[in-house]
């Protein structure tokens, strides 16, 4: 068994002025892995995710990526143009607020097609069928393909955003609290949907959440963050059931409700 390493992160560090965002982060991500980043709010989870997905340029460190085409690349020293192209086509970012990830001025189908056009798929009926297929897969009504995002509920908007991202078969999906803004009952259903999709297709994903139930449910391995640094990492069930670091022990006992 030889699984490809698609991301190698070394000493990744980001400061906001004097303030630590995240510091000295090291990890490897292999194809098909789902990595969870957990910690309290303010612990640096989203900063780390933004550095990884190219939304912000870290103060220091290294990110090597190795995608399906093109061998190993030093992500942080790619020309801005190439970085943006990567993010548009090979990365998929699912934002906490679906409105940040959707184009509100075009239809549901248009949103999915827009993304597919970036990976150079131009056939109209193909785009439409793919749109409907993904709406079905995320348990939306495909007959609503021509409606605009704002006519959908928050939960449905999130499903649409997930359709939009996954339809283009990205090589790494980034999710930041994907169910954060939703009602608990809606959250559970969306997690079910995400879970069944990741079981079906071999996606590689990095997911930020403060919710340990989400982590247990979805992820293979974990980074536990506190005050900008990673205090513990490992197989998800190992970290949750036999936590080694005092902070992880606090997090997994009911003492600290994050």
């Amino acid at each position: 068994m030889n699984i490809k390493k698609i991301m190698h992160v070394e000493n990744l560090t980001h400061f906001y002025g004097n303030q630590i965002g995240c510091k000295g982060i090291n990890f490897d991500l292999y194809k098909g892995e789902i990595l969870g980043i957990v910690g309290e709010s303010g612990s640096g989870k989203s900063t780390l995710l933004k550095c990884l997905s190219g939304e912000i340029s870290p103060s220091a460190g290294k990110i090597n990526i190795s995608l399906d085409q093109g061998g190993v690349k030093d992500f942080l020293s790619l020309p801005e143009q190439e970085k943006r192209q990567l993010m548009r086509s090979m990365w998929g970012i699912v934002h906490q607020n679906p409105r940040d990830g959707l184009n509100l001025r075009i239809s549901a189908g248009g949103n999915i097609a827009e993304r597919l056009l970036n990976v150079s798929e131009k056939n109209y009926s193909f785009l439409r069928n793919t749109g409907k297929y993904w709406m079905k897969k995320t348990e939306m009504d495909p007959d609503r393909i021509d409606e605009f995002p704002l006519s959908f509920s928050g939960g449905m908007q999130q499903r649409l955003q997930i359709s939009k991202i996954l339809s283009s078969n990205p090589q790494i999906v980034f999710m930041d609290e994907p169910t954060g803004g939703l009602d608990v009952s809606v959250q559970a259903k969306i997690l079910d949907t995400i879970k069944s999709i990741v079981r079906d297709i071999n996606v590689t994903m990095i997911i930020v959440t403060h919710d340990l139930a989400v982590v247990r449910f979805l992820t293979d391995k974990l980074l536990v963050m506190k005050d900008g640094i990673v205090v513990e990492t490992g197989l998800t069930d190992r970290v949750l059931d036999d936590p080694q670091h005092s902070y992880t022990q606090l997090l997994t006992s009911s003492i600290l409700q994050v």
Binding site: M1, Y30, E33
Partner: peptide
């Protein structure tokens, strides 16, 4: 071992 090796 690496996590994916244990998972496998």
């Amino acid at each position: 071992s690496l996590e994916h090796q244990i998972i496998n």
